[in-house]
């Protein structure tokens, strides 16, 4: 039975599922990475994802155009991010708690809107899987890597883009400077507030996109609490990734593949109670960090309010 796990179709299945499931985490976690690198902890990711998921679904349901849905989802997410930035940067509110508030608001509001505008579970035709010509014909690799919907490809493309922005541009430098030493950045003429507004709004936009990747691409439905806590896992993955896009990529893939693996463990009849199988991704994510040797550089000013002139 355990040997069955190494059959070709099982491994292909696990990898394909892992890549698909990693998509929402990637968007949300990379967005959160930007925010945290500039010093803002946003625990409201799940609420932003839910609002994005709802908005994307609603627009797609009524217009039949998933691109329009996607756009609105990103806008709604960005708006939530802007609100979070206003709360945490301008109003200097405690970030952990305001994030929980944003989460609760998104959870309730998306559900309320769902009930009042849709009323019942509906389906849409969102982004269908898109086989990339030629590449998807490659045996094994083609199925695993090149037979997904477009938002999956987008999520994986985001990793190098984010890496480039953070490591090779002045903007990235500014973001990290603001996160590490806001007073010094301020003295150098970098507007701490402006950078934080930008990163948190971007984080919100990506959270909205993460939600849309569920409601109009992967699942094509919307339901109360569609994300089921994924946004919190996304926050955890930022720590797993040690605030680097590649680390987040590794973490998302590990978590999602183990989740896909546990489904196979159950199907193949490997005698583990299903509840323990479901635990596997959570346990292994922690274990992986214990055994990984790594250098962590948490942004020094993370979740600390910057008061100009207080150094």
């Amino acid at each position: 039975m355990i040997a069955d796990l190494f059959a070709a179709n099982v491994i292909i299945g696990i990898l394909t599922s892992g890549i698909r499931l990693a998509t929402p985490y990637l968007y949300a976690s990379i967005g959160e990475t930007f925010g945290q690198l500039s010093g803002v902890l946003n625990l409201g990711v799940d609420g932003m994802m839910l609002m994005g998921a709802y908005a994307g679904f609603y627009v797609t349901f009524h217009t039949g155009n998933p691109w329009l849905g996607l756009l609105v989802a990103i806008l709604v997410g960005a708006l939530m991010g802007l609100a979070m930035a206003f709360i945490s940067v301008t109003l200097k509110a405690e970030q952990g708690i305001s994030g929980i508030g944003v989460y609760l608001f998104g959870l309730g509001m998306s559900d309320l809107l769902f009930q009042k505008t849709l009323g019942t579970v509906e389906t849409v035709s969102g982004f269908a899987p898109l086989n990339i010509p030629l590449l998807s014909d490659i045996p094994v690799l083609g199925t695993v890597f090149f037979s997904h919907n477009i938002l999956v490809y987008g999520a994986f493309l985001l990793v190098p883009v984010a890496w480039f922005i953070l490591n090779k541009t002045t903007l990235g430098l500014k973001i990290k400077a603001v996160g590490q030493n806001p007073a010094a950045a301020d003295a150098l003429g970098v507007s701490v507030a402006r950078v934080r507004y930008a990163t948190v709004t971007l984080g919100g936009a990506l959270a909205g996109l993460a939600g849309a990747s569920l409601s109009i691409a992967l699942l094509n439905v919307f339901q109360q609490n569609l994300t089921s806590g994924m946004g919190f896992i996304a926050v955890a993955l930022v720590y797993f990734g040690g605030w680097t896009p590649t680390g987040v990529l590794l973490g998302s893939l590990l978590f999602s593949s183990v989740n896909a693996l546990q489904l196979w463990v159950q199907i193949l009849g490997i005698p583990i109670p299903s509840d323990f199988a479901v635990m596997m991704p959570y346990v292994l994510t922690i274990l992986a960090l214990i055994f990984a040797v790594r250098k962590v550089n948490q942004p020094a000013s993370l979740s600390k309010v910057f008061e100009r002139g207080e150094g």
Binding site: I100, G101, L104, L107, G108, F114, Q224
Partner: peptide, 17 residues
């Protein structure tokens, strides 16, 4: 709907903080 209460709960937290 109970969803309104969750949303309101969130608003209270955000406003107070």
């Amino acid at each position: 709907p109970s969803a309104l209460i969750t949303a309101l709960n969130g608003l209270v937290v955000i406003f107070v903080v």
